[in-house]
Design a protein around this nucleic acid. Structure first.
Lengths: 312, 312
DNA sequence: GAGCATAATCGAAAAAAACGATCATATAAA
DNA sequence: TTTATATGATCGTTTTTTTCGATTATGCTC
């Protein structure tokens, strides 16, 4: 019986994480000197390590042209895999740290702009209470960017609105966030008990600019096409959107979380729920599959779920 | 702007592949001395490395009880991730080797017993001609074991019958393999032009023993329940199955690939195709997702596809 | 051609890894 | 209980790997 797997290094010569780390730096920075600086080693050290790696693999990974250095296709491919490997090693360190002291250490959370400002003031104190040893770093960005930051290991988790294509990520649903319609003061529909989605098509519907998932979710919820909409007025945040409505420019859809946070405070704007359909988005916490922080994030998701206004 | 990712090792202390390799050995063998031997290092070296690792991670990975060593849950978890990491590093070496000289080097292929013996004699000469620099190592086993061997990196690819749950693997379909019914000589149905699956239920249907996917595929193809079958006669290979049919013990289903290979040579057994339904299995080549041999395997799959009897 | 920037090269120093021998301790055998 | 055995930790030394600083070679810019 042939045994294929062996613990001996002689079986298969594999590159070291050290060599791969240096390769990544050069591929990213396209410069040996700068890469060496970033790695906190001398240029000669890095140069030697890269050559070792090329010798070991028996292939050119970098094209040196005396004026600039360019990764070969193979070099790029290997650098990409190397990134995943190093992330895997970091994950090991993470889960060990988490096992040593659960729910502690730094946790870098991203949130989309239509959630963050409204949930943070309410949730942060409670999270601090529940996870006193956790050091929460928050960042606000749009879904697509947050996911790419997750992928790059720049953040550990992200609070986003679903549905959204999140293949390759793990997630936990936190809450369901329903949409309501906000009218200008004295709008002709303001006295109604509710409104139908089909009626909305006749209104001047104000939405966030492209890139905000709330825009797409709101349109989808009301079965409206983006192309049909008057594109003249787009808000850059829910706050500006509300101001536009208050000025009579049109109506808009707001998520419950924003209403709960008092976004309309001081304004006398009629709010109507949509009849029958009750459009909504789901709020979910997502993280990179295999992340060393998975356990912590699941706990945080659970906390969010309990803290969420609609759950309280 | 906070930069999270850094090339410096100081950012995040990560374990080395060397340390992880030693850990895997101890977790597998539950013995420092034997693990050291397997790793081709002294026991003291391995012992020190494991301690380094535990120090670095700040957690106990192994429970030493003076008489035996037992991995902690964390140790097991980390060993599992370490295995994936080392496989990733080997993949890097593989794709570099493949890039250096495409379609060369050793390739360890597994095949299920109801395919291997029939396609190998026909395909091997052709494969040798097309990929003269490839060193093909073949192994025969049942699907479940082949997949586990793929997962463990003991083989690079496997030729199996689909459908089969292959989540986490990549695959390429090679051919469609239809089933025919083989009767004993002088069977009452032998003169018919075809037979319906429903009629098969009345026959003494001989199948391979449990574990062979052909058994399940054949039953599924004819919409028969395994539980209903007379379990008195089970063959250990298609050859013994054919002998049983020849001896009048019942009928059986054979895949076209076996018929093409002349499994009935010398025997005068009537073969009928199934009417209307044309039951079949698909033959596919599968490999571990991210395997360094992916490109080579895709090429081999393509070759199989062209070589396959039904395609010729 | 002078000056600058870049990566390769070299010898020496520092750090990491490995070894063999020994020790401590728990279990098994006498 | 005493002795023998097995196992992993520890220690000092040797070997190997990694790193550094200085220098060199080469191509660009002025």
């Amino acid at each position: 019986m042939i045994v294929f797997f062996d613990y001996a290094p002689a079986m298969k010569l594999i590159p070291s994480l050290r060599q791969l780390r240096y390769l990544i730096a050069v591929v990213d920075l396209r410069h040996f000197g700068q890469a060496a600086e970033a790695c906190l080693v001398s240029q000669s050290t890095l140069s030697a390590a890269i050559q070792e790696l090329e010798d070991l693999l028996g292939a050119k990974l970098l094209e040196r042209t005396k004026r600039s250095v360019l990764p070969t296709p193979l070099g790029l491919e290997i650098a990409a895999r190397a990134r995943a490997l190093i992330k895997g090693a970091e994950d090991i360190a993470d889960i060990a740290a988490a096992a040593r002291e659960p729910l502690s250490g730094p946790l870098r959370l991203g949130m989309i702009p239509t959630i963050g400002p409204f949930i943070v003031p309410r949730a942060m104190p409670e999270l601090r209470k529940r996870f006193p040893k956790l050091k929460l770093f928050l960042r606000e960005d749009q879904t697509a960017r947050l996911l790419s930051q997750l992928e790059n290991g720049e953040i550990d988790g992200a609070l986003i609105a679903l549905p959204y294509p999140i293949d390759g990520f793990d997630s936990a649903t936190v809450a369901r966030d329903r949409f309501s319609v906000v009218f200008p003061p004295n709008h002709r529909k303001a006295q109604a008990a509710g409104i139908r989605a089909s009626e909305l098509a006749l209104e001047e519907l104000l939405l966030l600019e492209d890139g905000h998932c709330l825009r797409d979710h709101a349109l989808a919820a009301c079965s409206l096409e983006s192309a049909r909409r008057n594109e003249g007025f787009k808000g850059t945040s829910l706050y500006t959107l509300v101001q536009m409505v208050a000025n009579g420019l049109g109506v808009t859809l707001l998520p419950q979380i924003a209403l709960d946070a008092g976004i309309l405070r001081g304004l006398k704007l009629p709010v109507l729920t949509l009849e029958a359909e009750t459009p909504y988005r789901d709020i979910g916490l997502v993280w990179r599959r295999g992340s060393g922080q998975a356990r912590t994030l699941a706990a945080v998701a659970g906390a969010f779920k309990e803290i969420w206004p609609s759950a309280g």
